[in-house]
Amino acid sequence: MINKTRLSEWGGLVLVWLAIVALFGLLAEHFLSAATFTTLAGRLPALAVIAAGMTLVVVSGGIDLSVGSVMALCGAVLGLAVTQWKWPLLAAVPLAILTGAAAGLTNGLLTAGLRIPSFLVTLGLLEVCRGLSYAVSGSRTLFIGAGIEPLARPLPFLGVPATVPAALLVVVTAQILLSKTVFGRHLVAIGTNENAVRLAGIDTRRAKVTVFLLSGALAGVAAVFAVARLGSADPNAGTGLELAAIAAVVIGGTSLAGGTGSVIGSLLGVLVIATLEAGLAQLGASEPLKRMVTGGVIIAAVAADGLRRRLSADRD
């Protein structure tokens, strides 16, 4: 569904982002420097792939609250495989992603099979996976170090680590999946009116299970990115990440009611949130101020988007 309104939406978000960059450029001395943007580029991939999965789930009318915990669990599994079992990265990384996929599959089967609202199912999995993550890691931070750091090292010509193009690839693929495939169309349709889709003879359950599976697997991918950047696996990682991802998705123009949204928009939402975070940190803002400003910007962005939508709805 890439059409003119979508493009104008993305354009609007880019403007918002530029405004934030300009503002911090004025306020913080060294904000407009290459270092800021390489740091940002390093930080974006994990949140971006999580937001991509979340977008697909939200478009289909669901929500996945478990992503943060699933990410921590996958990170712990990755850390364990590398440090304790001495697995090579080539085997440990797929294992981490599979772990995420398994958690996602559980979410999907419970949601679609037992017809429990995804809010409740994933809320449950949020707790379960956090617990598993503590159990797997023995509540200990696992240091991996040199084994995984190459992933986070800047690539020779790009100046950014390999995780950045990888995340972009994920985002673009997810966008294409959403707008150009039958599966994506089914997600949009289910998010609009699941009953009508079922009565059109479409297997809504399969689509729903698949979308949660994807979201889980992408949380696994995010875990690999995050662990690579920090060189260690933190069983406490990703607390509250689901809320950041939902905020990014909503800022990106996806409706929490389902039925409409875009992955590229969510990427821009992630960009806005991460830039805000980086800028406030560079300003040395106090914790209370950080929280208030971040909350304010989320509300303002969503309100502005709602206003824009209403204005354009009045026109046709």
Partner: peptide, 29 residues
């Protein structure tokens, strides 16, 4: 309204909902 239509979606999406397999190849629309 409740069992047939995706009200917020376009006429195109609604009209082809049951026949997507005919308007796609290998899952691509």
């Amino acid at each position: 309204r409740h069992d047939g239509l995706l009200l917020s979606q376009s006429v195109r999406v609604n009209a082809t909902l049951a026949t997507l397999s005919r308007h796609s190849r290998h899952g691509w629309l």
